[in-house]
Write a protein that binds this DNA or RNA. Sequence first.
DNA 1: CGCCGACTATGACAGCTGTCATAGTAGCGG
DNA 2: CCGCTACTATGACAGCTGTCATAGTCGGCG
Lengths: 198, 198
Amino acid sequence: MADARRGPRERMVFSAAQLIRRDGVTATGMRDVAAHAQAPRGSLQHYFPGGKEQLVGEALAWAGRYAGDRVARFCAGMAEPTPGGLFAAMVRQWTDEFESAGFAAGCPVAAATVDCAGSAAPVRAAAADAFAAWTGPVARALAGMGVPAERAGPLATLMVSALEGAIVIARAEQDVRALATVARELAPLLDGSVVRAG
Amino acid sequence: MADARRGPRERMVFSAAQLIRRDGVTATGMRDVAAHAQAPRGSLQHYFPGGKEQLVGEALAWAGRYAGDRVARFCAGMAEPTPGGLFAAMVRQWTDEFESAGFAAGCPVAAATVDCAGSAAPVRAAAADAFAAWTGPVARALAGMGVPAERAGPLATLMVSALEGAIVIARAEQDVRALATVARELAPLLDGSVVRAG
DNA sequence: CGCCGACTATGACAGCTGTCATAGTAGCGG
DNA sequence: CCGCTACTATGACAGCTGTCATAGTCGGCG
């Protein structure tokens, strides 16, 4: 949980992301973050002079980077990468977590958007950047699988949208049904978008 | 805003839904709800002895009912109903609101799920019911358009998932791009699921 | 040693939260 | 008129929030 190898600053960013995705931005207190990271409370104002907005913003940037990096790892793990296979891997990551760790935590970017889109502009912008850092690698991966360039971006947006929505529904229902459904129903459309060379 | 025709109780439920979808559950105070509904603060404990959980639960039930009822109205407004057309109408409702009223407010059910799934079980259950009250009519509408019974439910879940996710992304980006994308990309899949009679 | 910067510790601050207790008022049937 | 119910009004409560001010403690460098 509190990995001492990483510095206290990075630990707090990581902990903020974890608490946000569980309880939302508003319900996550600065003191909670410090305690969860096993970091001194006084370090908060030292490392994050911009206050809560800065901490939340960095947590979202971290989450976006993490999600984007995972995409490449999913592709590397597949024998013959297909769009439907990539989407299945993205979905499986969530079904695995829900089934092993429960439905308490969702996506931190979605949580921050829902909590702050109408109030804190900098956080909202950080959420948009995080989505971009996630959707971009997905679109590039699709293009690498033979999806025409002009369709890779829209399909990536569709994949992330469906996944985010299914995450929310799964948490409400406490059942991975919605995740399994979107993976199954979307696969033909995704795989059908590949243009075979030769 | 504060429709005097409806009683103060119903006004508070309505106001709660509006404030929740804008600021989230945690950031929405009981005093705010009473003020927004132009209802006396003392009425809160009178009409909602179950406290905030009851108020939020009723707001979600109202939202779910409202979304479900809209589906029938969308179908009635279409000359020849198709799955893609229904989804386009559901999406358009949101693009219209975002473009006219800004991106401050999203879906109250998603907001409550993100805020409470890990903490308040009754609210989480109310969110699940609200999703069911929304997805059910969508599935029945699909079935009425010629979609095989065993596919109507899953496709309805896919539609709601994609819409919810696109709403979140649109709010983060302050752009209806994601909504337009999911409507366009999903239409062929939806319309292709119709089995022609004869 | 002295000094300085990085980091930590702690207490205070005003403001807000949901909830409760208590009292008060209006309306109406009898 | 009483009495009752439905509803309103208001103040208090403990607990939490983000932020700030102030002081303290290291470690290393000259």
